[in-house]
Amino acid sequence: MSSTDPDGLTRQLVGLFAAVNRRYAREIEQAAAAHRLTALQAKALLAAERPVRMRAVADTVHAEPSNVTAIVDRLEERGLVERRPDPADRRVKLVAATGQGREVTADLRRRMPFVNDPFTALGTGEREQLLDMLQRLMAD
Rank of each mutant, 00 (worst) to 15 (best):
Q41F: 04
S3L: 14
L131Q: 15
T4C: 11
A33P: 03
V72F: 04
G8K: 06
E27F: 01
E76G: 04
P65Q: 05
F17R: 04
P85N: 11
N67T: 12
R22M: 03
R110H: 13
R50G: 09
L134T: 07
R74F: 07
P87D: 07
S66M: 13
N67K: 14
R53I: 11
R102H: 09
E49I: 03
L37R: 02
L13P: 02
A34S: 13
R53Y: 05
D132S: 13
L37D: 07
L137D: 04
N21H: 07
Q12S: 12
M112I: 02
D86Y: 05
T124E: 14
A44W: 02
A88L: 11
P85R: 13
D107L: 09
H35R: 07
L40V: 09
V92F: 08
V115F: 08
E126Q: 13
L45T: 00
D59M: 05
L46N: 08
R50S: 15
G101V: 05
A32R: 03
H35D: 12
L40Q: 10
V20L: 05
E82I: 10
S66R: 15
R55W: 10
E103F: 06
N67H: 15
A139T: 11
R111Y: 00
D89G: 01
A97D: 07
V115H: 07
M1N: 12
